[in-house]
Nucleic acid binder design. Sequence first.
DNA 1: TATTGTTATACTCTATAACTATA
DNA 2: TATAGTTATAGAGTATAACAATA
Lengths: 142, 142
Amino acid sequence: MLDLENYLPYLLNRAGVRVAMKFTQDMRPQNITVQEWRVLASLNFNGPQRMSALADHTSIDRTTLSRLVSRMEGADLVSRSRTEEDGREVHIGLTKKGAKLTEGIVPLAKRYEEIALEGFSPEEAVALRDMLRRVYGNFEKL
Amino acid sequence: MLDLENYLPYLLNRAGVRVAMKFTQDMRPQNITVQEWRVLASLNFNGPQRMSALADHTSIDRTTLSRLVSRMEGADLVSRSRTEEDGREVHIGLTKKGAKLTEGIVPLAKRYEEIALEGFSPEEAVALRDMLRRVYGNFEKL
DNA sequence: TATTGTTATACTCTATAACTATA
DNA sequence: TATAGTTATAGAGTATAACAATA
Protein backbone atom coordinates (compact mmCIF):
# COMPACT_ATOMS: atom_id res chain seq x y z
CA MET A 1 0.00 0.00 0.00
CA LEU A 2 1.13 3.48 -0.78
CA ASP A 3 -0.64 6.75 -0.08
CA LEU A 4 -0.05 9.24 -2.84
CA GLU A 5 -0.73 12.10 -0.42
CA ASN A 6 2.50 11.27 1.40
CA TYR A 7 4.48 9.88 -1.49
CA LEU A 8 7.36 12.19 -2.22
CA PRO A 9 7.77 11.59 -5.98
CA TYR A 10 4.10 12.38 -6.42
CA LEU A 11 4.16 15.50 -4.25
CA LEU A 12 7.24 16.70 -6.06
CA ASN A 13 5.98 16.11 -9.57
CA ARG A 14 2.55 17.48 -8.76
CA ALA A 15 3.92 20.75 -7.39
CA GLY A 16 6.34 21.19 -10.29
CA VAL A 17 3.69 20.52 -12.90
CA ARG A 18 1.18 22.79 -11.22
CA VAL A 19 3.54 25.77 -11.19
CA ALA A 20 4.58 25.14 -14.79
CA MET A 21 0.97 24.87 -15.95
CA LYS A 22 0.02 28.11 -14.28
CA PHE A 23 2.98 29.83 -15.84
CA THR A 24 2.03 28.47 -19.26
CA GLN A 25 -1.44 29.95 -18.91
CA ASP A 26 -0.10 33.35 -17.92
CA MET A 27 2.31 33.28 -20.85
CA ARG A 28 -0.45 32.73 -23.39
CA PRO A 29 -0.50 36.40 -24.45
CA GLN A 30 3.28 36.30 -24.98
CA ASN A 31 2.82 33.00 -26.74
CA ILE A 32 5.78 31.18 -25.18
CA THR A 33 6.06 27.91 -23.31
CA VAL A 34 7.88 27.12 -20.07
CA GLN A 35 10.75 25.55 -21.98
CA GLU A 36 11.07 28.56 -24.24
CA TRP A 37 11.12 30.77 -21.18
CA ARG A 38 13.99 28.72 -19.75
CA VAL A 39 15.97 29.26 -22.92
CA LEU A 40 15.34 33.00 -22.79
CA ALA A 41 16.24 33.17 -19.10
CA SER A 42 19.46 31.25 -19.56
CA LEU A 43 20.55 33.31 -22.54
CA ASN A 44 19.74 36.44 -20.56
CA PHE A 45 21.67 35.36 -17.48
CA ASN A 46 24.50 33.23 -18.89
CA GLY A 47 24.87 35.06 -22.19
CA PRO A 48 25.14 33.58 -25.69
CA GLN A 49 26.16 29.94 -25.63
CA ARG A 50 26.44 26.69 -27.55
CA MET A 51 23.57 24.26 -27.92
CA SER A 52 25.15 21.77 -25.55
CA ALA A 53 25.68 24.40 -22.84
CA LEU A 54 22.14 25.61 -23.29
CA ALA A 55 20.86 22.06 -22.94
CA ASP A 56 22.78 21.71 -19.69
CA HIS A 57 21.63 25.03 -18.27
CA THR A 58 17.98 24.43 -19.04
CA SER A 59 17.86 20.66 -18.51
CA ILE A 60 16.22 20.32 -21.91
CA ASP A 61 16.99 17.29 -24.03
CA ARG A 62 19.20 18.10 -27.01
CA THR A 63 16.83 16.89 -29.67
CA THR A 64 13.94 18.77 -28.09
CA LEU A 65 16.10 21.86 -27.74
CA SER A 66 17.08 21.77 -31.39
CA ARG A 67 13.47 22.01 -32.53
CA LEU A 68 12.67 24.48 -29.75
CA VAL A 69 15.42 26.79 -30.95
CA SER A 70 14.21 26.45 -34.53
CA ARG A 71 10.79 27.59 -33.44
CA MET A 72 12.23 30.49 -31.48
CA GLU A 73 14.44 31.43 -34.39
CA GLY A 74 11.34 31.52 -36.58
CA ALA A 75 9.73 33.88 -34.06
CA ASP A 76 12.86 36.06 -34.17
CA LEU A 77 13.59 35.53 -30.47
CA VAL A 78 17.03 33.95 -30.83
CA SER A 79 19.73 33.77 -33.48
CA ARG A 80 21.76 30.78 -34.52
CA SER A 81 25.28 30.94 -35.93
CA ARG A 82 28.15 28.55 -36.57
CA THR A 83 31.38 29.35 -34.78
CA GLU A 84 34.62 29.86 -36.67
CA GLU A 85 36.85 27.79 -34.39
CA ASP A 86 34.79 24.63 -34.61
CA GLY A 87 32.40 24.19 -37.50
CA ARG A 88 30.29 21.73 -35.56
CA GLU A 89 29.33 24.13 -32.82
CA VAL A 90 26.36 26.43 -33.00
CA HIS A 91 26.07 29.58 -30.95
CA ILE A 92 22.71 30.80 -29.76
CA GLY A 93 22.00 34.35 -28.68
CA LEU A 94 19.06 36.59 -27.94
CA THR A 95 17.82 38.90 -30.68
CA LYS A 96 16.70 42.39 -29.73
CA LYS A 97 13.13 41.19 -29.78
CA GLY A 98 14.06 38.22 -27.60
CA ALA A 99 15.91 40.40 -25.11
CA LYS A 100 13.00 42.79 -24.88
CA LEU A 101 10.50 40.00 -24.38
CA THR A 102 12.68 38.43 -21.69
CA GLU A 103 12.97 41.67 -19.76
CA GLY A 104 9.22 42.00 -19.84
CA ILE A 105 8.75 38.52 -18.40
CA VAL A 106 11.35 38.66 -15.61
CA PRO A 107 9.12 40.61 -13.19
CA LEU A 108 6.32 38.07 -13.57
CA ALA A 109 8.78 35.23 -13.12
CA LYS A 110 10.01 36.77 -9.90
CA ARG A 111 6.44 37.17 -8.77
CA TYR A 112 6.03 33.45 -9.35
CA GLU A 113 8.80 32.70 -6.94
CA GLU A 114 7.13 34.91 -4.35
CA ILE A 115 3.81 33.13 -4.78
CA ALA A 116 5.45 29.72 -4.49
CA LEU A 117 7.17 30.75 -1.27
CA GLU A 118 4.24 32.54 0.32
CA GLY A 119 4.18 31.70 4.00
CA PHE A 120 7.79 30.47 3.94
CA SER A 121 10.50 31.86 6.17
CA PRO A 122 13.74 32.87 4.42
CA GLU A 123 15.43 29.85 6.03
CA GLU A 124 12.77 27.51 4.71
CA ALA A 125 13.15 28.92 1.22
CA VAL A 126 16.87 28.30 1.33
CA ALA A 127 16.34 24.79 2.65
CA LEU A 128 13.78 24.01 -0.03
CA ARG A 129 16.06 25.09 -2.87
CA ASP A 130 18.85 23.05 -1.38
CA MET A 131 16.73 19.95 -0.98
CA LEU A 132 15.40 20.20 -4.54
CA ARG A 133 18.96 20.31 -5.84
CA ARG A 134 19.82 17.28 -3.73
CA VAL A 135 16.83 15.26 -4.93
CA TYR A 136 17.72 16.12 -8.51
CA GLY A 137 21.29 15.10 -7.84
CA ASN A 138 20.22 11.81 -6.28
CA PHE A 139 18.56 10.87 -9.55
CA GLU A 140 21.23 12.33 -11.78
CA LYS A 141 23.65 9.53 -10.96
CA LEU A 142 21.31 6.76 -12.03
CA MET B 1 18.33 39.12 -14.49
CA LEU B 2 17.38 35.77 -13.11
CA ASP B 3 19.61 32.79 -12.40
CA LEU B 4 17.84 29.54 -13.17
CA GLU B 5 20.16 27.72 -10.78
CA ASN B 6 18.52 29.54 -7.87
CA TYR B 7 15.07 30.01 -9.31
CA LEU B 8 12.62 27.96 -7.31
CA PRO B 9 10.02 27.21 -10.02
CA TYR B 10 12.81 25.86 -12.20
CA LEU B 11 14.42 23.78 -9.44
CA LEU B 12 11.02 22.39 -8.52
CA ASN B 13 9.93 21.48 -12.02
CA ARG B 14 13.33 20.10 -12.93
CA ALA B 15 13.42 17.74 -9.97
CA GLY B 16 9.85 16.59 -10.50
CA VAL B 17 10.39 15.94 -14.18
CA ARG B 18 13.65 14.12 -13.59
CA VAL B 19 12.14 11.68 -11.13
CA ALA B 20 9.11 11.07 -13.37
CA MET B 21 11.31 10.47 -16.39
CA LYS B 22 13.44 7.95 -14.57
CA PHE B 23 10.36 6.17 -13.35
CA THR B 24 8.96 6.06 -16.89
CA GLN B 25 12.14 4.41 -18.11
CA ASP B 26 12.07 1.78 -15.37
CA MET B 27 8.40 1.09 -16.12
CA ARG B 28 9.05 0.33 -19.77
CA PRO B 29 8.93 -3.46 -19.22
CA GLN B 30 5.56 -3.07 -17.45
CA ASN B 31 4.51 -0.72 -20.20
CA ILE B 32 2.83 1.90 -18.00
CA THR B 33 3.29 5.64 -17.68
CA VAL B 34 3.60 7.76 -14.55
CA GLN B 35 -0.01 8.85 -14.84
CA GLU B 36 -1.20 5.30 -15.20
CA TRP B 37 0.82 4.38 -12.14
CA ARG B 38 -0.90 7.14 -10.16
CA VAL B 39 -4.27 5.72 -11.11
CA LEU B 40 -3.22 2.24 -10.02
CA ALA B 41 -1.78 3.54 -6.74
CA SER B 42 -4.88 5.54 -5.90
CA LEU B 43 -7.24 2.66 -6.67
CA ASN B 44 -5.04 0.41 -4.58
CA PHE B 45 -4.93 2.75 -1.59
CA ASN B 46 -8.29 4.56 -1.75
CA GLY B 47 -10.26 1.71 -3.26
CA PRO B 48 -12.73 1.82 -6.18
CA GLN B 49 -13.96 5.33 -6.87
CA ARG B 50 -15.71 7.65 -9.30
CA MET B 51 -13.93 9.40 -12.12
CA SER B 52 -14.13 12.77 -10.39
CA ALA B 53 -12.65 11.40 -7.16
CA LEU B 54 -9.92 9.69 -9.11
CA ALA B 55 -9.14 12.93 -10.90
CA ASP B 56 -8.82 14.69 -7.54
CA HIS B 57 -6.65 12.01 -5.98
CA THR B 58 -4.26 11.85 -8.89
CA SER B 59 -4.31 15.50 -9.96
CA ILE B 60 -5.02 14.36 -13.50
CA ASP B 61 -7.26 16.49 -15.69
CA ARG B 62 -10.67 14.91 -16.26
CA THR B 63 -10.44 14.74 -20.03
CA THR B 64 -6.97 13.25 -19.86
CA LEU B 65 -8.12 10.79 -17.22
CA SER B 66 -11.03 9.64 -19.32
CA ARG B 67 -8.79 8.56 -22.17
CA LEU B 68 -6.22 7.21 -19.74
CA VAL B 69 -8.83 4.97 -18.15
CA SER B 70 -10.00 3.82 -21.58
CA ARG B 71 -6.46 2.76 -22.39
CA MET B 72 -6.09 0.99 -19.06
CA GLU B 73 -9.46 -0.68 -19.53
CA GLY B 74 -8.25 -1.95 -22.88
CA ALA B 75 -5.19 -3.39 -21.15
CA ASP B 76 -7.48 -5.05 -18.61
CA LEU B 77 -5.98 -3.13 -15.69
CA VAL B 78 -9.14 -1.39 -14.52
CA SER B 79 -12.87 -1.90 -14.91
CA ARG B 80 -15.50 0.75 -15.59
CA SER B 81 -19.14 0.48 -14.49
CA ARG B 82 -22.13 2.80 -14.18
CA THR B 83 -23.59 3.10 -10.69
CA GLU B 84 -27.23 2.28 -10.02
CA GLU B 85 -27.97 5.31 -7.83
CA ASP B 86 -26.86 7.90 -10.36
CA GLY B 87 -26.64 6.92 -14.00
CA ARG B 88 -24.14 9.66 -14.72
CA GLU B 89 -21.49 8.37 -12.37
CA VAL B 90 -18.87 5.85 -13.39
CA HIS B 91 -17.05 3.68 -10.91
CA ILE B 92 -13.50 2.58 -11.56
CA GLY B 93 -11.85 -0.37 -9.90
CA LEU B 94 -8.77 -2.52 -10.27
CA THR B 95 -9.07 -5.80 -12.13
CA LYS B 96 -7.19 -8.80 -10.81
CA LYS B 97 -4.51 -8.16 -13.38
CA GLY B 98 -4.36 -4.50 -12.35
CA ALA B 99 -4.11 -5.37 -8.67
CA LYS B 100 -1.35 -7.85 -9.31
CA LEU B 101 0.60 -5.38 -11.45
CA THR B 102 0.23 -2.70 -8.78
CA GLU B 103 1.53 -4.95 -6.03
CA GLY B 104 4.51 -5.72 -8.18
CA ILE B 105 5.31 -2.05 -8.67
CA VAL B 106 4.87 -0.86 -5.09
CA PRO B 107 8.32 -2.05 -3.92
CA LEU B 108 10.01 -0.19 -6.75
CA ALA B 109 7.94 2.91 -6.03
CA LYS B 110 9.05 2.80 -2.40
CA ARG B 111 12.60 2.41 -3.54
CA TYR B 112 12.15 5.59 -5.55
CA GLU B 113 11.23 7.50 -2.45
CA GLU B 114 14.34 6.18 -0.74
CA ILE B 115 16.54 7.26 -3.63
CA ALA B 116 14.98 10.71 -3.71
CA LEU B 117 15.59 11.15 0.00
CA GLU B 118 19.10 9.72 0.11
CA GLY B 119 21.19 11.82 2.46
CA PHE B 120 18.12 13.39 4.06
CA SER B 121 17.40 13.25 7.77
CA PRO B 122 13.89 12.10 8.76
CA GLU B 123 13.11 15.66 9.80
CA GLU B 124 14.20 17.01 6.44
CA ALA B 125 12.03 14.49 4.64
CA VAL B 126 9.01 15.55 6.66
CA ALA B 127 9.79 19.20 6.03
CA LEU B 128 10.19 18.65 2.30
CA ARG B 129 6.83 16.89 1.96
CA ASP B 130 5.20 19.65 3.94
CA MET B 131 6.77 22.40 1.85
CA LEU B 132 5.79 20.72 -1.41
CA ARG B 133 2.18 20.58 -0.25
CA ARG B 134 2.35 24.24 0.68
CA VAL B 135 3.80 25.30 -2.66
CA TYR B 136 1.11 23.31 -4.43
CA GLY B 137 -1.51 24.95 -2.24
CA ASN B 138 -0.13 28.42 -2.91
CA PHE B 139 -0.83 27.90 -6.59
CA GLU B 140 -4.11 26.07 -6.13
CA LYS B 141 -5.89 29.27 -5.14
CA LEU B 142 -4.96 31.12 -8.30
C1' DT C 1 36.09 7.30 -34.99
C1' DA C 2 34.15 10.69 -31.81
C1' DT C 3 31.59 14.91 -31.31
C1' DT C 4 27.95 18.44 -32.36
C1' DG C 5 23.88 19.11 -33.80
C1' DT C 6 19.55 17.96 -36.75
C1' DT C 7 15.71 15.20 -38.42
C1' DA C 8 12.04 11.53 -38.25
C1' DT C 9 8.59 8.75 -36.05
C1' DA C 10 5.50 7.42 -32.73
C1' DC C 11 3.51 8.21 -28.39
C1' DT C 12 1.93 10.78 -24.17
C1' DC C 13 0.08 14.73 -22.14
C1' DT C 14 -2.26 19.32 -22.24
C1' DA C 15 -5.75 22.86 -23.53
C1' DT C 16 -10.05 23.95 -25.24
C1' DA C 17 -14.40 23.29 -26.67
C1' DA C 18 -18.23 20.68 -28.02
C1' DC C 19 -20.88 16.84 -26.98
C1' DT C 20 -24.04 12.92 -24.69
C1' DA C 21 -26.65 11.27 -21.01
C1' DT C 22 -28.64 11.76 -16.64
C1' DA C 23 -30.51 14.51 -12.84
C1' DT D 1 -30.26 23.96 -16.22
C1' DA D 2 -26.56 21.64 -13.91
C1' DT D 3 -23.58 17.68 -13.38
C1' DA D 4 -20.64 13.50 -14.82
C1' DG D 5 -18.20 11.96 -18.11
C1' DT D 6 -16.62 11.45 -23.16
C1' DT D 7 -14.78 12.83 -27.59
C1' DA D 8 -12.21 15.77 -31.00
C1' DT D 9 -8.48 18.59 -32.42
C1' DA D 10 -4.25 20.86 -32.25
C1' DG D 11 0.04 21.71 -30.07
C1' DA D 12 4.07 20.64 -27.07
C1' DG D 13 7.29 17.46 -24.99
C1' DT D 14 9.70 12.78 -24.82
C1' DA D 15 12.17 8.54 -26.46
C1' DT D 16 14.68 6.40 -29.82
C1' DA D 17 17.19 5.95 -33.62
C1' DA D 18 19.22 7.41 -37.70
C1' DC D 19 21.55 11.01 -39.95
C1' DA D 20 25.01 14.87 -41.75
C1' DA D 21 28.93 17.60 -41.01
C1' DT D 22 33.11 18.50 -38.76
C1' DA D 23 37.05 17.18 -35.95
